[in-house]
């Protein structure tokens, strides 16, 4: 392996007509990596907070996600129960062991049977907490980890994601900034998922169908802060 490593790097340098980079140039490249700069950022997402939330909802619904906006965590169980009823779905939900999800008073809704854990074969509805939302395309950002198992985002037929209204950012760049600020520069989890709408395919005669391998439905619940 070491041989093919040296051979590949050697071939690259020979093709570029140089040897290993001089230290000065390496330092400049290291600096570029250490201070990641945003490039061209579309104006669409650079709007004020209320416009961001409206844009997020419009973009998510454009790609067949459904959304609900609630005044505070205590309103979430009723909204979830109603969504499940309206779609004729079972009322058993698997919750992510996430502080955001745990802060919801689930027991207030006797219609719901809740369990907690990672996603498994027979789970039908999963509820997870998003790290943030990105308005420019109605995208959710989810970070894998003990509190947010990737399996719960992908295995259940129905994915319900909670996102605080205050954490709907305009652009992807702001999302990266927050990941670095809150998790540290080396803080990427095993998987960062950007999710934009429910799973889909157009592989058969270009006919668009939802629910290819991931969830058939994505319901985003935007949670405003509890009134003080």
């Amino acid at each position: 392996m070491t041989d093919s490593r040296a051979a590949t790097l050697g071939a690259i340098r020979a093709a570029l007509g140089r040897g290993p980079l001089p230290d000065q140039e390496t330092a400049a490249l290291e600096a570029r990596l250490a201070n990641p700069a945003a490039g061209v950022v579309p104006g669409r997402g650079r709007v004020d907070a209320e416009a961001r939330i409206a844009l997020f909802i419009a973009e998510a619904e454009r790609v067949s996600a459904t959304t609900a906006r609630v005044a505070g965590p205590e309103a979430v169980p009723a909204v979830v129960a109603r969504f499940l009823r309206e779609h004729n779905l079972p009322s058993t939900v698997k919750l992510a062991p996430d502080p955001q999800v745990r802060s919801i008073p689930w027991s207030q809704q006797s219609a719901l049977t809740v369990t907690e854990g990672h996603g498994e074969k027979d789970d039908v509805v999963g509820v997870t907490g998003a790290f943030c939302g990105v308005a420019e395309t109605g995208t959710l950002v989810l970070l894998s980890g003990p509190e947010s198992p990737s399996t719960l985002d992908f295995l259940p037929d129905t994915h319900i994601a909670l996102v605080p209204a205050a954490r709907i950012f305009g652009t992807y760049e702001e999302a990266w900034e927050r990941v670095r600020a809150e998790r540290g520069a080396d803080g990427l989890p095993r998987a960062v998922h950007w999710i934009t709408g429910p799973s889909r395919t157009a592989d058969i005669e270009q006919t668009l169908l939802l629910g290819a391998h991931g969830p058939r439905r994505l319901h985003v619940v935007i949670v405003d802060a509890r009134a003080p």
Partner: peptide, 15 residues
Amino acid sequence: QEMSVYNTFVTGPRR
């Protein structure tokens, strides 16, 4: 599409 449905950044094995 504006963005594909799933864009995933995978970093290493499970923690």
